[in-house]
């Protein structure tokens, strides 16, 4: 029987993998991909929570409120899309200015 626990632990596993990638990758685009994994892991947790634990008091009057978690996940998708577009613009600027996309070498803003 698959329950909320399974989805939340799966979300935690994906989040940890993404965190590892975001911390260890040298290439800035690989870091962006790891951050996308983090967003997706959080989305799984949000939707699973909405599916399994919506309080009856909230859902009794208007059943649409059962979908509040999905609307929340939609906003996360929007923010993630904006983030990756702006992140890639920054990476391309970095490549143009320094000829490298390795985050270890991005030290021009260091004092």
């Amino acid at each position: 029987m698959i329950g909320l626990d399974h989805f939340l632990v799966l979300s935690a596993v994906l989040f940890s993998i993404g965190l590892y990638g975001a911390l260890t990758r040298k290439n800035a685009i690989a870091v962006l991909m790891s951050i996308e994994l983090l967003f997706n892991a959080v989305n799984v947790a949000v939707v699973a929570m909405a599916r399994y634990t919506t309080p009856v008091a909230l859902a009794a009057e208007r059943l649409e409120t059962l979908l509040t978690g999905q609307v929340f996940a939609l906003f996360i998708v929007t923010v993630a899309a904006a983030e990756v577009a702006l992140g890639l613009a920054i990476v391309i600027m970095m490549y143009r200015n320094t000829g490298s996309v390795h985050v270890d070498e991005a030290s021009s803003m260091r004092r």
Binding site: T24, R25, K26, N27, I29, A30, L32, M33, E36, V84, A85, L88, V91, I92, Y95, S100, V101, H102, D104
Partner: peptide, 20 residues
């Protein structure tokens, strides 16, 4: 697709993407 375009535009072929 956006990420793949980004990879192709700034490809760092010599070093790949090693771990730090």
């Amino acid at each position: 697709i956006l990420l793949i375009f980004g990879i192709m535009m700034v490809r760092d072929t010599q070093r790949g993407s090693q771990a730090n």
